[in-house]
Amino acid sequence: MNNWIDLLIILLILSNFVMLGSSRLAVCIRTLAIQGILLGILPLMIDRQDLVLHTTLVSIGALIIKGIVFPWLLFKVLRRIGIRREIEPFVGYVPSLFIGLAGLIVSLYIGSKLDFPAPESVADVIPLSLFSILAGLFLLTTRKKALSMVMGYLVLENGIYAFGSVVLNKVPVIVELGVLLDALVAVFIMGIATYHINREFDHIDVNRLDNLKG
């Protein structure tokens, strides 16, 4: 059933748009959790005919780390710093959505040009992963709160993971798991850093960190 892969891809694309258009940080974290779970399922859907141990292992690892551990860590930071929403990003939410749409079209174009040795059924995962990478970069550059930037980084990472899931059979399992662990450590450190920034300056507005320069 190709419909199921289509459905997953559509939901993943929509979750990126939710990340772009939502101002509430709690909504963003929940969306990220859903995205992580969907990404965990994605490789299992692609390789359903010849389900190998290696794919299953990486998928379950991704599902646990991206779908449960990251959101849990982010919610912990969110509770500690006590802010609810991103206020006044550099680009507003409706323009962000339009830019996201432009990014989607660009990634579809690049995806169609890219001559990539992938099976026919997963050809759509490549535009999806390019779009996730673009959306993650956009979130990283236009949001002001440190926590939103961490989430932008995670969307970017999810894009790279989706790209990897197409070629999962060819990448050694140790590399995949290593990347997942790297991301985990990164989120852990960023969470602690965000907490300390907040405790030191009473806000996590990255823009104002510029003032510290002597």
Binding site: I10, L14, L97, L101
Partner: peptide, 9 residues
């Protein structure tokens, strides 16, 4: 805009 995005998708 969300409706528009649904249509485009």
């Amino acid at each position: 805009v969300a409706a528009g995005i649904f249509s485009v998708l």
